[in-house]
């Protein structure tokens, strides 16, 4: 086959969604637009969920009590991304991590920057780097990324849920 001969074509697959956040996520994102991270606490097992989904998957009950959390936590799990994803403006290699905020019982996915890749580890303490307040909207992208905050690492056994006190 000669060099210029075409041996492939691009076939775009596209799905248009209209995403509805739901009551719990709407409340969470409205607080995020004010620079606050507010989770929900299960009335039965006391687990704190952030972002909240409106119910406790462990107990099957609605979660209504709101708990404001700090924008500091630790790395529960991470991956270093080396392959560029089309349309993604972040230049690899970069770290995607499951961040466990202090006082929360679940983690969420976010970016870690301002770090030497060889230093990233499970249990490392991190803190949020917020965008300028003028750019805040109802999105977790108000936090640009998390960066190392120093201090002693969290013992990974601390991530295990121990139930009500």
């Amino acid at each position: 086959m000669s060099e210029e001969k075409k041996d492939h074509f691009i076939s775009p697959i596209s799905l248009d969604y209209n995403y509805t956040a739901g009551a719990a996520t709407t409340r969470f994102l409205k607080k995020v637009s004010e620079g606050k991270i507010v989770g929900q606490k299960c009335p039965k097992c006391t687990a704190v969920y952030v972002p909240p989904r409106g119910s406790c998957p462990r107990c099957g009950v609605a979660t209504e009590e709101e708990v404001e959390l700090v924008d500091k936590g630790s790395v529960e799990s991470f991956t270093i991304v080396h392959i560029p994803i089309p349309g993604n403006p972040i230049v690899p290699p970069y770290v995607c991590a499951m961040i466990r905020l202090e006082g929360a019982n679940i983690s969420f996915l976010h970016l870690i920057q301002e770090i030497d890749l060889k230093d990233i580890r499970i249990g490392m303490r991190v803190e949020a780097v917020w965008k300028d307040k003028s750019e805040w909207d109802t999105t977790l992208e108000n936090i640009k990324w998390f960066k190392p905050s120093g201090g002693d690492d969290i013992d990974p056994s601390e991530y295990r849920f121990k139930g009500p006190e």
């Binding site: 086959m1 001969k5 076939s11 248009d16 969604y17 009551a23 709407t26």
Partner: peptide, 25 residues
């Protein structure tokens, strides 16, 4: 309630091979 459009899109690169390639040519 918050709502937002969300577009899920992938550009697949499909190899045509010697036979389908010649058909398309």
């Amino acid at each position: 309630m918050l709502r937002a459009p969300f577009k899920l899109e992938y550009d697949y690169e499909r190899s045509t091979g010697p036979i389908i390639g010649k058909f398309f040519e």
